[in-house]
């Protein structure tokens, strides 16, 4: 099995987001970077599938030069090689992103059996890149997936729905967008990190087409203007808490 897992470099936001002066990005002066949580699970799932079925995992990203950090991180947890579509640092809309991924996958001499995505990126949350890639490659697609079982050239995928999980039986090759909770991603080991430095990484620079969903600016949502009422310090606050529970009718 050749499994692709597509990831995106995003800032690790803490308790409060601040924007750059031009309002086109999150100020990351004091922030580290990671991959979106759903996508980290996509890489872990790809690694587990290949551990069972044999084959190799290719991790792919479209992002600025610094995204190599995330590709090395994902190779440290078991991806075998990386494809880096080096962007110009500008925002790529979902159609442009999908087109670049499709071109990269088509040019791979070893076509994938399975292409994994996160259900939506942590930052833009467009919910569509996986679906667009599937249609362009003429492959079936399942999204919102919390379990994958590979057997007999098919992927049995469980999609989370209210009240349970819907099972889709997809013939391979297929595109699957997964959600956090499908697995618990492993931490990279020190030997894993050392090995990752030597794993192959193919970089190229696709051209960014004009955006059809063109981001103009970001803004923080209006504050609810809440004023917290401190009920007390430590265990002495218990009677005041229970009074509030009673007022709210939840006691």
């Amino acid at each position: 099995m050749h499994v692709y897992a597509c990831v995106k470099r995003v800032p690790m936001t803490g308790g409060q987001i601040t924007l750059t002066d031009d309002q086109r990005a999150i100020s990351t002066r004091h922030l580290g970077f990671t991959v979106s949580p759903h996508e980290e699970c996509a890489v872990e799932e790809a690694v587990q599938i290949v551990e069972r079925e044999g084959g190799s995992v290719t991790v792919l990203t479209l992002g600025p030069a610094e995204s190599e950090e995330q590709l090395r991180d994902m190779m440290a947890i078991g991806a075998d090689q990386a494809v880096h579509l080096v962007s110009d640092g500008e925002e790529w809309d979902p159609q442009a992103t999908a087109a670049a991924i499709v071109a990269a996958i088509r040019s791979d001499p070893q076509p994938p059996d399975l292409i994994l995505f996160g259900n939506e990126s942590a930052d833009a949350g467009n919910y569509q890149v996986a679906v667009r890639v599937a249609h362009q490659l003429g492959l079936p697609c399942v999204t919102g997936v919390k379990a994958i079982n590979i057997s007999g050239g098919r992927a049995r995928c469980e999609q989370e729905v209210p009240g349970g999980r819907d099972v889709y039986d997809a013939p391979l090759p297929a595109v699957v967008a997964v959600k956090e909770g499908i697995n618990l991603p492993r931490y990279p080991s020190v030997p894993g990190r050392l090995r990752a430095k030597r794993k192959p990484l193919a970089a190229s620079q696709p051209q960014r087409p004009p955006a059809r969903l063109e981001m103009l600016r970001l803004e923080l949502p209006p504050e609810a203007g809440k004023q917290v009422r401190i009920l007390g310090q430590g265990p002495d606050a218990a009677p005041a808490v229970v009074e509030i529970l009673s007022e709210l009718g939840v006691l």
């Binding site: 401190i230 430590g234 265990p235």
Partner: peptide, 22 residues
């Protein structure tokens, strides 16, 4: 900053007191 009500304290000390009070 997001809360309506707050208690400042270690939850392991605060919660047993709330449970007992309920």
């Amino acid at each position: 900053a997001h809360a309506d009500y707050g208690v400042v304290g270690d939850l392991h000390a605060v919660l047993p007191g709330i449970a007992a009070e309920i």
